[in-house]
Nucleic acid binder design. Sequence first.
DNA 1: CCGAATTTGTTACATCGGTAACAATTGAAT
DNA 2: ATTCAATTGTTACCGATGTAACAAATTCGG
Lengths: 151, 151
Amino acid sequence: MNDDLLSLEEFLPYRLNRLADAVSRDFSRLYRDRFGLTRPEWRLLATLGQYGTMTATAIGQHSAMHKTKVSRAVTALEERRWLRRAPHATDRRVEHLTLTKAGEDAYRELVPLAREFETRILEQMRPAEKGAIISGLAALERAMLQQRDQD
Amino acid sequence: MNDDLLSLEEFLPYRLNRLADAVSRDFSRLYRDRFGLTRPEWRLLATLGQYGTMTATAIGQHSAMHKTKVSRAVTALEERRWLRRAPHATDRRVEHLTLTKAGEDAYRELVPLAREFETRILEQMRPAEKGAIISGLAALERAMLQQRDQD
DNA sequence: CCGAATTTGTTACATCGGTAACAATTGAAT
DNA sequence: ATTCAATTGTTACCGATGTAACAAATTCGG
C-alpha cells in the first residue's frame, strides 16, 4: 500500500458519509412520499413523538439540528397542525412544543415503517455483522465525544 | 421497551447521519482552513489524487457525487489551476481530468493531515472496537448494495 | 445511412441550510 | 436598581445542492 496515496474506500469520514447518504436517501422516501415531510421535519416529529413535550433548544441539542432548522421545521409542522406551542410558566422566551392528535397519528403511522426499513437492511447481514455495526457505531459515538471534550 | 415509540438513539439511519455529520464537520476544517476547499472539491481532489486521470462521470459514480456537484467542483479546481482537462481520443463529449503539479502538491499536503485525523479518532477506541466499526461498515456497505440489487 | 434514443456535461431555477444580525427576555455583576 | 452579558428563537442574506431542461455528441434500430 502506498503511503503517498489515501485510499478513499478505507477512509472513515468518506465511508460514513457515503453510507449515511445512501441510507438517508432511501429512508427519506418513506416520509417524503407518504407525507411530503423534509428530513428536519421528520426528525422533529420523531423527537417529539419519542419524548413528548420539549423546547426548541432541547430538540436542537438532542437531535443535532441547527436552531434555524428546528425553527423552520416547527413552523412547518405547526402550519400542518401537527404540533402546538405552549408558553413556559416563568420564561417567556421559551415555548413548549407538543404533538397534536394529528401529529401523533402521523408518528404512529411512520414508526412501523421506520422499523421495517431498518430491519430490511439488517436482515441482509449476519448476526456477527449486525453486532459489529451496532457496537462499532456506539464506540465511534463515544470516541467523537471524547475527542470533543479534549479540545 | 415500548413498541409504539421509536428510539432515535438506536435507529440506524439517525445514528449514521449524526456521526457522518459530526465527523465531516470536524474533518472539513482541515481542507477548508488550509485551502478554502468545499467538500465536493476535496472529494474531487482526493479521487483524482488516488486514481490519476478520470472522466467526470466516472468520478461521480465512484465518489457518489451528483454530476452537477462534480461539474462545479471541476470548474472550481480548474480555476485554481489544480486540474486540467484533456480531450478524449474518440469521444468529444468526454474530458479526461488530471491534477496539475499544483493540485498534486495540495493533495500531498492534505493526505497526511487526513491520515492523522482518522488516527486521532481511532486511537480513542480499543482494538476490538476499531475492528467492529471497520468490519461493521463493510458489512453495511454490502447490505446496501444487495438491497439496491433487489429492487 | 437516418432518425430516435442515450450519454456527457453545463446551466437555470427553486429550495435548503448555515452565518450573522436581530428583538425579546432573562440572568449576573456591582 | 441598572447596566451588561447571555439565552431563546426568528429572519435576512448568501452559498450550496438537486431537478429539470438543455446542447452537443454518440449509439442504436431498422
